[in-house]
Amino acid sequence: MIRSLINIISWRAFLLVLLTLVLVQADDFVISDVKIAVTTSDSVRKLYESIPYPSSFDKPIQLTSGDDFKMIFVVNDKQTQKGVQPHQAFLTLTSEKNGNQIPIIIRVRENGKSKVELDMKSAPDELLSSPGNYSLDLIIGTFSYNDPLKYHVATLEIDVPIQSSGHSPVVYGPKPEIHHIFRPDEKLPPIWLSYSFVAIVLIPWVFLIGAWACIGVNVSLLARAPEPSLMSILFLGSLLAIEILFYNYWTHLNIFQTLTWLTGLSIVAFITGQKALSDVQKWRSLGLR
Protein backbone atom coordinates (compact mmCIF):
# COMPACT_ATOMS: atom_id res chain seq x y z
CA MET A 1 0.00 0.00 0.00
CA ILE A 2 2.66 2.46 1.15
CA ARG A 3 4.90 1.29 -1.61
CA SER A 4 2.35 2.03 -4.30
CA LEU A 5 1.80 5.49 -2.75
CA ILE A 6 5.52 6.21 -2.97
CA ASN A 7 5.47 4.93 -6.50
CA ILE A 8 2.69 7.32 -7.44
CA ILE A 9 4.42 10.25 -5.76
CA SER A 10 7.75 9.57 -7.42
CA TRP A 11 6.05 9.11 -10.76
CA ARG A 12 4.31 12.45 -10.36
CA ALA A 13 7.56 14.09 -9.37
CA PHE A 14 9.20 12.71 -12.47
CA LEU A 15 6.35 14.08 -14.59
CA LEU A 16 6.73 17.49 -12.97
CA VAL A 17 10.47 17.55 -13.73
CA LEU A 18 9.78 16.52 -17.30
CA LEU A 19 7.16 19.23 -17.68
CA THR A 20 9.45 21.94 -16.36
CA LEU A 21 12.19 20.70 -18.67
CA VAL A 22 9.83 20.96 -21.59
CA LEU A 23 8.78 24.42 -20.50
CA VAL A 24 12.37 25.55 -20.21
CA GLN A 25 13.16 24.03 -23.55
CA ALA A 26 10.21 25.86 -25.00
CA ASP A 27 11.79 29.21 -24.21
CA ASP A 28 14.08 29.16 -27.18
CA PHE A 29 14.54 30.84 -30.50
CA VAL A 30 15.45 29.72 -33.94
CA ILE A 31 16.95 31.38 -36.96
CA SER A 32 15.34 31.08 -40.33
CA ASP A 33 15.66 32.44 -43.84
CA VAL A 34 19.41 32.91 -43.65
CA LYS A 35 20.63 34.43 -46.88
CA ILE A 36 24.12 35.65 -47.70
CA ALA A 37 25.24 37.71 -50.64
CA VAL A 38 28.57 39.11 -51.83
CA THR A 39 28.67 42.01 -54.25
CA THR A 40 31.89 43.20 -55.88
CA SER A 41 32.90 46.82 -56.17
CA ASP A 42 31.42 47.07 -59.67
CA SER A 43 28.00 45.87 -58.45
CA VAL A 44 28.35 42.32 -59.73
CA ARG A 45 26.76 39.79 -57.46
CA LYS A 46 29.45 37.22 -56.84
CA LEU A 47 27.52 34.96 -54.51
CA TYR A 48 23.95 34.54 -53.36
CA GLU A 49 23.02 31.60 -51.19
CA SER A 50 20.47 30.67 -48.60
CA ILE A 51 21.60 28.45 -45.79
CA PRO A 52 19.25 26.06 -43.95
CA TYR A 53 19.54 27.12 -40.29
CA PRO A 54 21.51 24.62 -38.21
CA SER A 55 23.98 23.78 -40.94
CA SER A 56 26.82 26.02 -42.05
CA PHE A 57 27.89 27.12 -45.48
CA ASP A 58 30.56 24.62 -46.44
CA LYS A 59 32.74 26.60 -48.84
CA PRO A 60 34.84 29.53 -47.66
CA ILE A 61 33.47 32.85 -48.79
CA GLN A 62 36.15 34.89 -50.47
CA LEU A 63 36.15 38.64 -49.84
CA THR A 64 38.57 40.85 -51.72
CA SER A 65 38.98 44.58 -51.37
CA GLY A 66 35.88 46.45 -52.46
CA ASP A 67 33.57 43.48 -51.86
CA ASP A 68 30.40 43.96 -49.88
CA PHE A 69 29.14 41.08 -47.75
CA LYS A 70 25.47 41.09 -46.73
CA MET A 71 23.53 38.70 -44.59
CA ILE A 72 19.85 38.65 -43.70
CA PHE A 73 17.95 36.36 -41.38
CA VAL A 74 14.89 36.21 -39.14
CA VAL A 75 14.88 35.45 -35.41
CA ASN A 76 11.77 33.48 -34.39
CA ASP A 77 10.39 31.99 -31.22
CA LYS A 78 10.66 28.23 -31.54
CA GLN A 79 7.10 27.54 -30.38
CA THR A 80 5.02 30.39 -31.68
CA GLN A 81 7.12 30.96 -34.79
CA LYS A 82 6.69 34.67 -34.21
CA GLY A 83 9.46 37.17 -34.72
CA VAL A 84 11.57 38.05 -31.69
CA GLN A 85 13.71 41.12 -31.12
CA PRO A 86 16.67 40.00 -29.00
CA HIS A 87 18.63 42.38 -26.80
CA GLN A 88 21.97 41.42 -28.21
CA ALA A 89 22.83 40.20 -31.66
CA PHE A 90 26.18 40.35 -33.32
CA LEU A 91 28.50 38.63 -35.73
CA THR A 92 31.98 37.73 -34.62
CA LEU A 93 34.87 37.25 -36.98
CA THR A 94 37.41 34.99 -35.28
CA SER A 95 40.79 34.81 -36.91
CA GLU A 96 41.93 31.27 -37.49
CA LYS A 97 45.48 32.55 -37.44
CA ASN A 98 45.75 34.26 -34.08
CA GLY A 99 42.31 33.95 -32.49
CA ASN A 100 41.58 37.69 -32.53
CA GLN A 101 37.89 38.46 -32.53
CA ILE A 102 36.20 41.30 -34.38
CA PRO A 103 32.57 41.93 -33.45
CA ILE A 104 29.97 43.47 -35.75
CA ILE A 105 26.75 44.61 -34.15
CA ILE A 106 23.48 43.57 -35.83
CA ARG A 107 20.31 45.59 -35.68
CA VAL A 108 17.24 43.40 -35.42
CA ARG A 109 13.80 44.82 -36.11
CA GLU A 110 10.81 44.15 -33.89
CA ASN A 111 9.49 41.44 -36.17
CA GLY A 112 12.83 39.59 -35.95
CA LYS A 113 14.06 40.56 -39.38
CA SER A 114 17.76 41.35 -39.31
CA LYS A 115 20.31 42.60 -41.76
CA VAL A 116 24.04 42.88 -41.40
CA GLU A 117 26.64 44.17 -43.77
CA LEU A 118 30.43 43.95 -43.93
CA ASP A 119 31.74 46.39 -46.48
CA MET A 120 35.41 45.87 -47.22
CA LYS A 121 35.72 49.55 -48.11
CA SER A 122 34.99 50.49 -44.51
CA ALA A 123 35.99 47.32 -42.72
CA PRO A 124 37.59 47.46 -39.26
CA ASP A 125 41.32 48.12 -39.25
CA GLU A 126 42.00 44.87 -37.44
CA LEU A 127 40.46 42.95 -40.32
CA LEU A 128 42.31 44.81 -43.03
CA SER A 129 45.66 44.62 -41.28
CA SER A 130 45.64 40.85 -40.91
CA PRO A 131 43.99 39.06 -43.84
CA GLY A 132 43.34 35.33 -43.74
CA ASN A 133 40.59 32.95 -42.79
CA TYR A 134 37.98 34.09 -40.33
CA SER A 135 35.25 32.04 -38.74
CA LEU A 136 31.92 33.87 -39.04
CA ASP A 137 29.62 33.23 -36.07
CA LEU A 138 26.23 34.62 -35.20
CA ILE A 139 25.64 35.24 -31.47
CA ILE A 140 22.19 36.05 -30.14
CA GLY A 141 21.16 36.46 -26.52
CA THR A 142 18.28 38.00 -24.66
CA PHE A 143 16.89 38.11 -21.14
CA SER A 144 13.60 36.26 -21.56
CA TYR A 145 15.16 33.23 -23.26
CA ASN A 146 17.37 30.98 -21.26
CA ASP A 147 19.88 29.78 -23.77
CA PRO A 148 21.85 32.13 -25.94
CA LEU A 149 22.62 31.00 -29.45
CA LYS A 150 25.92 30.68 -31.23
CA TYR A 151 25.66 29.65 -34.83
CA HIS A 152 28.64 29.09 -37.07
CA VAL A 153 27.49 30.54 -40.38
CA ALA A 154 30.48 30.22 -42.67
CA THR A 155 34.17 30.82 -43.06
CA LEU A 156 35.34 34.07 -44.60
CA GLU A 157 38.52 34.24 -46.58
CA ILE A 158 39.69 37.82 -46.42
CA ASP A 159 41.99 38.41 -49.35
CA VAL A 160 43.24 41.99 -49.29
CA PRO A 161 46.73 43.44 -49.47
CA ILE A 162 48.07 44.05 -45.98
CA GLN A 163 47.52 47.62 -45.00
CA SER A 164 49.65 49.09 -42.34
CA SER A 165 47.28 51.82 -41.32
CA GLY A 166 49.43 52.88 -38.42
CA HIS A 167 47.35 50.78 -36.05
CA SER A 168 49.06 47.59 -35.11
CA PRO A 169 46.60 44.77 -34.47
CA VAL A 170 45.59 44.47 -30.84
CA VAL A 171 47.44 41.54 -29.36
CA TYR A 172 46.37 40.39 -25.94
CA GLY A 173 49.07 38.85 -23.84
CA PRO A 174 51.62 39.53 -21.15
CA LYS A 175 53.40 42.85 -21.44
CA PRO A 176 57.16 43.00 -21.00
CA GLU A 177 58.18 42.90 -17.38
CA ILE A 178 58.62 46.21 -15.64
CA HIS A 179 61.84 46.35 -13.67
CA HIS A 180 61.88 48.63 -10.70
CA ILE A 181 64.68 51.13 -10.86
CA PHE A 182 65.87 52.56 -7.58
CA ARG A 183 66.69 56.21 -7.39
CA PRO A 184 70.43 56.66 -7.61
CA ASP A 185 72.12 57.40 -4.31
CA GLU A 186 72.54 61.02 -3.36
CA LYS A 187 76.05 62.21 -3.95
CA LEU A 188 77.94 62.45 -0.70
CA PRO A 189 80.35 65.32 -0.18
CA PRO A 190 84.05 64.46 -0.19
CA ILE A 191 85.11 62.76 3.00
CA TRP A 192 87.72 65.37 3.96
CA LEU A 193 85.00 68.06 3.90
CA SER A 194 82.80 66.03 6.21
CA TYR A 195 85.67 65.42 8.64
CA SER A 196 86.77 69.04 8.59
CA PHE A 197 83.23 70.10 9.42
CA VAL A 198 83.13 67.59 12.24
CA ALA A 199 86.23 69.34 13.59
CA ILE A 200 84.70 72.78 13.03
CA VAL A 201 81.50 71.83 14.82
CA LEU A 202 83.59 70.60 17.76
CA ILE A 203 85.32 74.02 18.09
CA PRO A 204 82.41 75.53 20.10
CA TRP A 205 82.85 72.73 22.62
CA VAL A 206 86.45 73.80 23.14
CA PHE A 207 85.24 77.35 23.52
CA LEU A 208 82.53 76.31 25.97
CA ILE A 209 84.88 74.32 28.18
CA GLY A 210 87.49 77.06 28.01
CA ALA A 211 85.01 79.79 28.83
CA TRP A 212 83.54 77.88 31.73
CA ALA A 213 87.00 77.21 33.05
CA CYS A 214 87.80 80.93 32.78
CA ILE A 215 84.63 82.01 34.51
CA GLY A 216 85.14 79.33 37.08
CA VAL A 217 82.60 76.59 37.46
CA ASN A 218 82.30 76.09 41.17
CA VAL A 219 82.62 72.35 41.32
CA SER A 220 84.37 72.80 44.62
CA LEU A 221 81.05 73.55 46.28
CA LEU A 222 80.13 69.93 45.84
CA ALA A 223 83.03 68.93 48.08
CA ARG A 224 82.51 71.47 50.79
CA ALA A 225 78.75 71.28 50.86
CA PRO A 226 77.31 71.01 54.32
CA GLU A 227 75.34 67.91 53.41
CA PRO A 228 76.35 64.93 51.32
CA SER A 229 75.98 65.94 47.70
CA LEU A 230 75.14 62.41 46.60
CA MET A 231 71.81 63.62 45.26
CA SER A 232 73.43 66.14 42.95
CA ILE A 233 75.72 63.53 41.55
CA LEU A 234 72.82 61.10 41.11
CA PHE A 235 70.80 63.79 39.38
CA LEU A 236 73.56 64.67 36.94
CA GLY A 237 74.19 60.96 36.44
CA SER A 238 70.55 60.30 35.56
CA LEU A 239 70.60 63.19 33.06
CA LEU A 240 73.74 61.74 31.50
CA ALA A 241 72.07 58.32 31.40
CA ILE A 242 69.08 59.80 29.56
CA GLU A 243 71.38 61.36 26.97
CA ILE A 244 73.20 58.03 26.54
CA LEU A 245 69.80 56.36 26.17
CA PHE A 246 68.96 58.83 23.38
CA TYR A 247 72.22 57.98 21.65
CA ASN A 248 71.34 54.28 21.85
CA TYR A 249 67.86 55.03 20.52
CA TRP A 250 69.50 56.72 17.55
CA THR A 251 71.82 53.79 16.89
CA HIS A 252 69.81 50.64 17.63
CA LEU A 253 66.94 50.75 20.16
CA ASN A 254 63.31 50.94 19.07
CA ILE A 255 60.82 53.40 20.47
CA PHE A 256 59.17 50.98 22.92
CA GLN A 257 62.43 49.95 24.55
CA THR A 258 63.43 53.60 24.64
CA LEU A 259 60.21 54.71 26.29
CA THR A 260 60.48 51.95 28.90
CA TRP A 261 64.01 53.00 29.84
CA LEU A 262 63.06 56.67 29.67
CA THR A 263 60.20 56.16 32.13
CA GLY A 264 62.48 54.60 34.70
CA LEU A 265 65.28 57.10 34.24
CA SER A 266 62.96 60.10 34.31
CA ILE A 267 61.48 58.95 37.62
CA VAL A 268 65.00 58.71 39.05
CA ALA A 269 65.88 62.09 37.57
CA PHE A 270 62.72 63.66 38.97
CA ILE A 271 63.24 62.44 42.52
CA THR A 272 66.97 63.10 42.67
CA GLY A 273 66.51 66.45 40.89
CA GLN A 274 63.99 67.60 43.42
CA LYS A 275 66.29 66.66 46.27
CA ALA A 276 69.38 68.11 44.65
CA LEU A 277 67.80 71.39 43.68
CA SER A 278 66.23 71.91 47.08
CA ASP A 279 69.69 71.29 48.54
CA VAL A 280 71.04 73.94 46.21
CA GLN A 281 68.29 76.29 47.30
CA LYS A 282 69.17 75.67 50.91
CA TRP A 283 72.81 76.50 50.26
CA ARG A 284 71.75 79.64 48.47
CA SER A 285 69.62 80.74 51.40
CA LEU A 286 72.55 79.98 53.72
CA GLY A 287 74.63 82.28 51.56
CA LEU A 288 77.10 79.66 50.49
CA ARG A 289 76.90 80.70 46.88
Partner: peptide
Protein backbone atom coordinates in the same frame (compact mmCIF):
# COMPACT_ATOMS: atom_id res chain seq x y z
CA UNK B 1 74.71 84.28 34.07
CA UNK B 2 78.20 84.37 32.57
CA UNK B 3 78.14 80.60 32.45
CA UNK B 4 74.82 80.73 30.62
CA UNK B 5 76.20 83.36 28.25
CA UNK B 6 79.12 81.13 27.40
CA UNK B 7 76.70 78.32 26.75
CA UNK B 8 74.62 80.61 24.50
CA UNK B 9 77.65 81.55 22.43
CA UNK B 10 78.56 77.88 22.16
CA UNK B 11 75.07 77.03 20.91
CA UNK B 12 75.07 79.97 18.50
CA UNK B 13 78.30 78.90 16.84
CA UNK B 14 77.23 75.26 16.68
CA UNK B 15 74.17 76.33 14.73
CA UNK B 16 76.14 78.73 12.52
CA UNK B 17 78.67 76.05 11.56
CA UNK B 18 75.92 73.56 10.74
CA UNK B 19 74.25 76.14 8.57
CA UNK B 20 77.50 76.94 6.78
CA UNK B 21 77.97 73.24 6.10
CA UNK B 22 74.44 73.07 4.69
CA UNK B 23 75.08 76.04 2.42
CA UNK B 24 78.39 74.63 1.18
CA UNK B 25 77.49 70.97 0.77
CA UNK B 26 73.73 70.88 0.31
CA UNK B 27 70.88 69.55 2.32
CA UNK B 28 71.31 65.87 1.48
Amino acid sequence: LQLIDAYLVFILFSGVFQFVHCVLVGTF
